[in-house]
């Protein structure tokens, strides 16, 4: 990751209309994934198998909400409000991947571990792909998120080793992988402005290259644990494309739940508990 900004770095005041639309798409993809992933992970708080694993998964959820806030803050700098980003945004405009919106079955800790693993592997790749972004405000924020992601991957890997150590655990993890893998592929689906995102240098890798890197990362690692990784070209993809705002029913239920209070109390602005950044 470069410490000094690119010489062709673009500040937000210099964005053309097309550039702004592209950078917004990139930021919403990042932010929505983090927010929805965290929202699902918090379902494990108090329900995790041990007090230690409870703390760990809560900690990860907390980090991901924090990252979501980093990216939504950048959108706020572009003129969005928090309600426009979250509370009043139509659920069909959200662009998170289908992986993160999936509900957890009670007790399916294997899903939580494997989902975290697949997600965090992709997260590293996509953060590295924006570390050298031409969008200056984004470049400033990537380092912190990358540091935390290293811990998340370690957590997921430790658990994967343990849960695949016996036949029962491995069978459960294989089921989870078969379920999650097709949804995880949507992490790398393009949105309408994908070409612009790369052309303007907001992201320095194409989604196709990132998907390949991800498959090459998770494939050998999971196979070394005795799991069969499905062929990405053979799996049936779930309905909905995530990135284009089409989602599974589970997303709409989740959205209704987490926006319920906001709709009911009708505050002028959502509470901000820290100093606002310019």
């Amino acid at each position: 990751m470069s410490e000094t900004p690119r010489s062709d770095a673009i500040d937000r005041r210099e964005l053309s209309a097309e550039q702004q639309a592209a950078v917004e798409e990139l930021l919403f993809r990042l932010a929505d994934d983090e927010f929805v992933h965290a929202e699902r992970l918090t379902e494990w708080q108090i329900y995790a198998p041990t007090l230690e694993s409870d703390l760990a998964i809560a900690n990860i959820a907390q980090d991901e909400f924090g990252h979501a806030r980093l990216w939504y803050d950048l959108l706020k700098q572009l003129g969005y409000t928090e309600p426009e980003c979250l509370w009043e945004r139509d659920p069909t405009e959200w662009t998170h991947s289908l992986l993160v919106e999936r509900p957890f079955d009670a007790g399916d800790w294997g899903d939580a571990v494997l989902r975290g693993y697949l997600y965090d592997a992709a997260e590293r790749i996509r953060l590295e792909a924006v570390a050298d972004t031409s969008y200056a405000p984004l470049a400033d924020r990537v380092g912190k998120a990358l540091e935390e992601e290293a811990y998340h991957r370690e957590h997921a890997t430790n658990w994967l080793e343990r849960l695949t150590a016996d036949d029962d655990g491995r069978a459960r993890m294989q089921d989870a992988l078969d379920e999650l893998f097709p949804a995880a592929l949507s992490l790398f689906d393009p949105g309408p402005r994908e070409d612009d995102i790369v052309a303007f240098g907001f992201r320095t890798e194409s989604l196709a290259a990132m998907r390949t890197e991800w498959l090459e990362t998770i494939g050998p690692a999971l196979e070394a644990l005795g799991l069969d990784v499905p062929d990405p070209d053979q799996v049936a993809r779930p309905n909905g494309r995530g990135r284009y705002g089409t989602h599974t029913d589970a997303w709409h239920d989740l959205y209704d739940e987490f926006t319920a209070t906001y709709r009911e109390v009708d505050f002028e602005t959502p509470a901000q508990l820290r100093a606002t950044e310019e």
């Binding site: 918090t42 708080q45 007090l51 939504y72 928090e82 987490f258 959502p270 509470a271 901000q272």
Partner: peptide, 29 residues
């Protein structure tokens, strides 16, 4: 408190709430 995390009507409140639940498990420990 877990119930309140899902219901929190602002991102900052949600963060404060997850942190609180985490503290409680830490206290139990």
């Amino acid at each position: 408190d877990k119930t309140f995390t899902r219901k929190a009507p602002s991102l900052d409140r949600k963060l404060a709430n997850t942190a609180k639940v985490q503290d409680e498990i830490g206290h139990a420990q």
